[in-house]
């Protein structure tokens, strides 16, 4: 009897070690580039590829200040936050509405519409860049914040609808039925029951879209010409020329730009886990 308890304990510890060994191994591979990036940001152009130590002897903290001022990050930072917020809110609202309809409501042409949206994900649009510019020109939206935002909301919709539809379909129907008996309208059910229950999925949509918008620059280059409208990635361009790349400043710049998105992720990932309990309370 005693032996089997011991055996059980050993097995448990071994399993624990195995799990963590695996997890830590994967984690190391994920963290290493980040550490390398940080340490490169603290080196000089001459030492960045010759001094391979992860903790440089003479850290150049000034690189961060230089990157911020040379890249003109102040206004770009503000722009990027604004674009990210508006696009994410737009995508979550519009996509969740449509996804709920596709998952729970009946109307003619439902499948056709859904596959139409899905198809926009599939076709890489090589000629579309120029077409998009011509279109926005006609709508007088070139070089405006609105044009840049709307295009990106549209770009995020298909993925958002597809993702949220999958999650709405998996939700138990009884809560919605209960709400209907309580006299809730269709919109009310969507707003009060379905949305809170889908918090984990919405968190995922927020994370995906925020990352895409935050890292976007091709569209910005195409549509915007006023420097005061440009997003953060424009600041990084200064450090990577066609020929000369200023690696330490580039790394410092990337570090600065990556911090907000990591913070956003740390906040949002809590909702992925917390979703179920919050949903239960609402019910």
């Amino acid at each position: 009897m005693k032996d089997s308890v011991l055996f059980y304990k050993i097995e448990k510890i071994l399993g624990w070690i195995r799990d963590h060994f695996f997890l830590i191994l994967v984690s190391l591979s994920c963290v290493f580039p980040l550490v390398w990036m940080l340490s490169s940001a603290l080196k000089t152009q001459a030492t960045v590829f010759s001094d391979m130590s992860l903790f440089p002897a003479h850290p150049q903290w000034g690189n961060f200040y230089l990157a911020w001022t040379k890249g003109g990050f102040g206004i770009y930072f503000f722009n990027s936050i604004f674009y990210t917020l508006t696009v994410v809110i737009g995508v979550v609202f519009i996509a969740s509405l449509a996804a709920y309809a596709f998952a729970r409501l009946e109307f003619p042409g439902k499948n056709i519409f859904f596959y139409l949206f899905l198809a926009t994900l599939m076709i890489p649009l090589p000629g579309a860049f120029i077409a998009l510019y011509v279109l926005l020109m006609k709508l007088h939206l070139v070089n405006t914040r609105l044009g840049y935002i709307l295009i990106q909301i549209n770009g995020g919709l298909a993925l958002g609808i597809f993702l949220l539809k999958t999650f709405f379909e998996r939700m138990p129907r009884d809560l919605e039925d209960a709400a209907r008996i309580d006299g809730c309208g269709k919109f009310g059910i969507y707003w009060r029951v379905a949305l809170p229950l889908a918090k984990p999925a919405i968190a995922v949509v927020v994370i995906f879209n925020a990352l895409t918008v935050w890292n976007e620059y091709l569209l910005a280059m195409l549509l915007l010409s006023n420097k005061s409208l440009m997003p953060l990635q424009r600041g990084l361009m200064i450090f990577q020329g066609a020929h000369v790349t200023q690696y330490p400043l580039l790394m410092a710049g990337i570090t600065i730009t990556v911090i907000p998105i990591v913070l956003m992720y740390i906040v949002m990932q809590k909702y992925i886990i917390a979703g179920i309990t919050a949903g239960a309370v609402t019910g």
């Binding site: 860049f129 420097k227 066609a242």
Partner: peptide
């Protein structure tokens, strides 16, 4: 006015 990388610049000029 600076537009980079060169692929983005090419498309901007074409558009």
């Amino acid at each position: 006015e600076l537009y980079a990388p060169s692929g983005a610049y090419t498309q901007k000029v074409m558009a």
